[in-house]
Design a protein around this nucleic acid. Sequence first.
DNA 1: TAAACAATTGAAAACTTGTTCAATTATAAA
DNA 2: TTTATAATTGAACAAGTTTTCAATTGTTTA
Lengths: 108, 108
Amino acid sequence: MEATTTMEATRRRISYDKLGMVAEIFSGLAHPTRLEILELLEDGGAYSVGQILKQIHIDPTLLTHHLTKMKHLGILRSSKQGRNVYYRLDMPEIRDVLECIQNCKIKI
Amino acid sequence: MEATTTMEATRRRISYDKLGMVAEIFSGLAHPTRLEILELLEDGGAYSVGQILKQIHIDPTLLTHHLTKMKHLGILRSSKQGRNVYYRLDMPEIRDVLECIQNCKIKI
DNA sequence: TAAACAATTGAAAACTTGTTCAATTATAAA
DNA sequence: TTTATAATTGAACAAGTTTTCAATTGTTTA
């Protein structure tokens, strides 16, 4: 099969800048621990670092680094209450992506 | 808002292995040039390296490296015809992801 | 106020990915 | 059978990410 030789006059193109931003968000998703965190936050709830740590057994410092990265990308948002910091999803599109992961059949 | 304290008896969990594979695929998408290539291949057509090069102005060696990476991840598949090598999408799920990029409003 | 707790900071080390370069393979055309 | 074209290989370097570590901040409880 060949590439189309007759193509629409104006080919729709996402700007390289937008592709760059989207690529950055994908790099935010490109780590199993970060996907695990997102799976936990998928329900829309706010979880403190300590609560996340009970589900995901990694070094607290490393968890903070992962959370900070996703926060800077706009994937998560945090709020402080007493000595706890609560994180929650802040990018609704991510939920679709997570749903897609659950449904799609990638051979294991 | 607090995390749910009463939660379903059995929490659905994607295995860490599957999360690892999915994370690898996301890392395949985490580069603007690779997203540009995928946007071009999204129509299902097969494009030779030369044809891709006409749309995306990068060094041919670098293009091959990007294509090879996506091929190894199972995102693309290639076939040779004469001295041309044609690449095409080989992971239908990617089309949904690309559609999502086009629709979703990420502030630029 | 001191001790304990929850989370973060920033720097360094370890590791992975992206880019460039020169050389190579395979096919087609002259 | 030589020359040109299409694409790839692999090594070297540059850039970026992940992990670890020691030190620190802010808040609560004793």
